[in-house]
Design a protein around this nucleic acid. Structure first.
Lengths: 192, 192
DNA sequence: CGGGCCTTTGACTGGTTTCAACTTCTGTGG
DNA sequence: CCACAGAAGTTGAAACCAGTCAAAGGCCCG
C-alpha cells in the first residue's frame, strides 16, 4: 500500500523510516468507481489526492453547459482544487474518476502539519508546484501559438498514456476544441 | 532599497533582522531601460527577478514571427524562465522591460542557498508558486471558456493596472488575440 | 516638425463551431 | 451471452467569428 506514493516522493526527497511511519498516520486511502465524484462544484475542497491507480479529471462547466477540462491525473499525479482548498470558498470545479481508481488522500490540515513536522516535505511540495507551474505556462503558450493539429500532436508526444486511456471528447475539451474539430483534425493527420 | 521586496516577503513569512541582513548579501539590484532585455531566447536563465519598480513581460516568438506574451510583471511581481533555470537548457523565452525598471536579482545558487539557510524562505516560495499555479490554471480555463469580450473584461477587472500601463497590442497578445480583434471588441463594448 | 509605432477600420478569407444525422462502440440488464 | 439503449465518434452543410492583409489616422518621441 502507498507504494507508488512513497516511490514518487523518494524521487525528490529522502524520508527516514520514522518519517515514513509518521507520514502514514496522515494518509487515508480511498477508492473511486468510474464516473464517481471526488469533488463537486459548490463543495469546499478539503484535501489533495494522489492517484495510486486509475485516472481522474478536473473540469468546470460554463454557462452554456460545456465542460472544460482543467487537468487529467493518472497514476503518480496529484489532483485537487487548490484555490478552494486555500481560500475555503466553494469550488467551481468538479473532479471525477475516468476509470475505477485508488487514491491517497491528505487533508488540508494533515498537509500543513506534515510540512511543519517534515520540512523536507515542504520542499517536495515546492518542487511539485514548480513543475506544475512550468507545465501550466507551457500549456498556455501552446494554446495560443499552435494549430489544432499541432496541439493534438504535442499532447500525443507529451502524454501518450493520457491519449490512449481517455475518451476523445475529453481530449478535445482539454485542448479547447469541440469533439468534431478534433475528429476532423485526426482524420486529416492520418492522410499523411 | 529593497523596501517593496521585504514588505512583500513580510506578508507571508516573518524574517528576523539577522535573517534580513543575511538575505541582503544574496541580492543584486539591477536597472533596466525600456525595451532592454533581461533574458533573450537562447540564453540560459540563471536568476529570478523581483520587480521593485517598472514593468516587464516574458514572451515567446513562434515560427511565424508572432509574439505570445506569457506573463507581465509589475511592481511586486516575480519574473524568470523557471524551466530554463531548473534544467539549465537555453530559454525559448524573452524577457524585456516595458518601462524603465528596477529589479532585485537572485541567482539560482543564491536562491538555493537562501532556502537552505532560511527554511521559511522555502515556505515563501511554495506559497508563491501555489498562487502562481492557481492563477495559471484559471487563465487556461478563461482562455477556453470565455468570449473575446469576456476575456478582456476579466483582465480589466483583475489587473486594471496592467491594462492601463501596457500597450494594447501586448494585452491582445496576452489574451491570445490579434490587435485588430481586441480593438474591435473594445469598440463593441463602448457601444453598451 | 517629422518619422515610426500603435490603433483603428474595412474587405476578404478560412478555420472552427454549430446542428443534425448516421455509425460504431460499450456496458448493462434480461 | 445476447440484445439493446445510450454514449462516443464521424461526417456533412451552413453560419460565424477571428485572422489576415492593407491602408489610413493619431499620437508620442526624438
Amino acid at each position: 500500500m502507498y507504494e507508488l506514493f512513497f516511490s514518487r516522493i523518494a524521487e525528490k526527497i529522502e524520508l527516514t523510516e520514522e518519517e515514513k511511519a509518521l507520514f502514514i498516520t496522515y494518509l487515508t486511502p480511498k477508492k473511486l468507481r468510474r464516473k464517481q465524484y471526488l469533488l463537486q462544484e459548490g463543495d469546499v475542497c478539503k484535501s489533495v489526492a494522489f492517484v495510486e491507480k486509475g485516472a481522474l479529471r478536473s473540469y468546470t462547466i460554463d454557462n452554456k453547459g460545456t465542460e472544460h477540462i482543467i487537468q487529467f491525473a493518472l497514476e503518480g499525479w496529484w489532483i485537487s482544487d487548490m484555490y478552494s482548498m486555500l481560500t475555503g470558498e466553494p469550488s467551481n470545479q468538479n473532479i471525477d474518476a475516468i476509470e475505477d481508481s485508488e487514491l491517497v488522500i491528505i487533508s488540508r490540515n494533515a498537509q500543513e502539519e506534515l510540512m511543519e513536522r517534515i520540512p523536507k516535505y515542504e520542499r517536495y511540495n515546492r518542487l511539485l508546484l514548480q513543475n506544475a507551474y512550468i507545465a501550466a505556462q507551457r500549456r498556455i503558450n501552446y494554446m495560443a501559438s499552435l494549430t489544432t493539429e499541432e496541439k493534438y500532436t504535442k499532447l500525443v508526444s507529451t502524454y501518450p498514456d493520457i491519449v490512449q486511456r481517455v475518451p476523445q471528447h475529453m481530449i478535445a475539451s482539454y485542448l479547447g476544441l469541440t469533439p468534431e474539430t478534433l475528429s476532423r483534425a485526426r482524420k486529416q493527420m492520418t492522410r499523411k
